[in-house]
Design a protein around this nucleic acid. Structure first.
Lengths: 210, 210
DNA sequence: AATAATTAATTAAACGTTTGTTTAATTCAA
DNA sequence: TTGAATTAAACAAACGTTTAATTAATTATT
């Protein structure tokens, strides 16, 4: 029954996301998933291999959605940016727990090969964005911006909001019980802000008085 | 000899930053600081209290530098933003290891009160930025942007660059041995990008052809 | 179709480490 | 001589992992 393996992975994402890799014990995990402690090692070999399988599985499932947008010749560069932002916000908001797990791993940078795997699996997304911005600059549709740091701004804005709920609530001036990531209005707000930020930054002439 | 206490804190920052809180054992720390294992508990009471003291000490040392800028009436709003960016980039680049430690803690969100302390100690900075942007909007110098998310973009851009060296190197297309955070050219580049991004986003009319 | 043989899944218990912390003795300084 | 600083050793608890036994499921044989 591979359902059980999937079930363990699901619970593992949940626990790793809230307690970190070191902070999550196999006993905790086994209890939460309602399986015997030995089952984790039986299925995955080790705690670390479980983590790797978890990362690879999730990363593979959402790859190359962005490249389609990048290669869609019916769209202008700024329209592509809009679509990329929408896709990215949507993806990260829905998979936010998993996203938190892999960013924890990326930041702590302990298990070296795993960190590299994560960086590699995330990089295609950044590359698609890079292609789009570079194309826009070549077409004279965009200003001659710092491409790499512009991408850092897109990703960084979302991560800043998403990675720490505690800080996000401070920033938004909301109570502890509010969960912004489940509020569609907030998702739209992030979308609108990012799109506007990028239009301001990328397009050659912005005459948005208001 | 309080020098020894300081020394332990210094080493602790180093180790926590590279191996995380859970990943750093008191024995590792004691060995690296060349003191007996018992000394950490003797001085700090516990591993967690050491961490708290570490955070409080660092946070207190750099507080309210931004409020001065916010209250400087001789500067326009966009000039204040420029100064804030400069100060923030400088501060985070030089204290990047410590910055990484507290962000790990913020993201993992395990020791609840500590996470709150960190969020609280970081928040005044965000608040200063908020004041500046809101004032600029009131003065009609700035567009009517989403203030909170604009701050998220400033902080997020820097964090995106700084928190994971592995991903940063991928983004910059550099070799593994390059350390961007020690390259003054790169620091200037981040400054320039952020300032331009914010001018584009905040100022009412941007006629920056090229 | 029923039974035997074989493989897979599951379990409780134990393994050896490592963890943070404490103790009790000793050294050092005031 | 008193109190702080420092040490080596030990503590219990938690860790990831393994073992060996048992149950369930699958396959092969009659």
């Amino acid at each position: 029954m591979t359902d059980k393996k999937e079930h363990i992975i699901d619970i593992a994402i949940e626990l790793f996301a809230t307690k970190g890799f070191e902070g999550t014990s196999i006993r905790d995990l086994a209890a939460a998933a309602d399986v015997n402690v030995a089952m984790v090692n039986y299925y995955f070999g080790s705690k670390e291999k479980l983590f790797e399988e978890l990362v690879q599985r999730k990363a593979a499932s959402s790859r190359n959605l962005l490249t389609e947008i990048a290669n869609d010749s019916s769209l202008t560069a700024i329209e592509k940016i809009d679509k990329v932002i929408e896709l990215y916000v949507e993806k990260i908001f829905t998979n936010r727990k998993f996203h938190r797990v892999i960013h924890q791993e990326l930041i702590t940078n302990q298990r070296e090969t795993l960190t590299r795997n994560i960086a590699d699996s995330m990089f295609p997304n950044a590359l698609s964005m890079k292609t789009i911005v570079e194309e826009g600059i070549r077409n004279k549709e965009f200003k001659n911006v710092d491409v790499q740091l512009t991408i850092a701004s897109i990703l960084g804005t979302i991560n800043q909001i998403l990675l720490s709920k505690t800080f996000c609530l401070r920033l938004l001036d909301k109570q502890e019980d509010y969960v912004p990531y489940e509020d569609p209005k907030f998702k739209k707000r992030v979308n609108d802000h990012l799109k506007e930020l990028m239009r301001d930054h990328l397009l050659k002439i912005t005459n948005n008085p208001q």
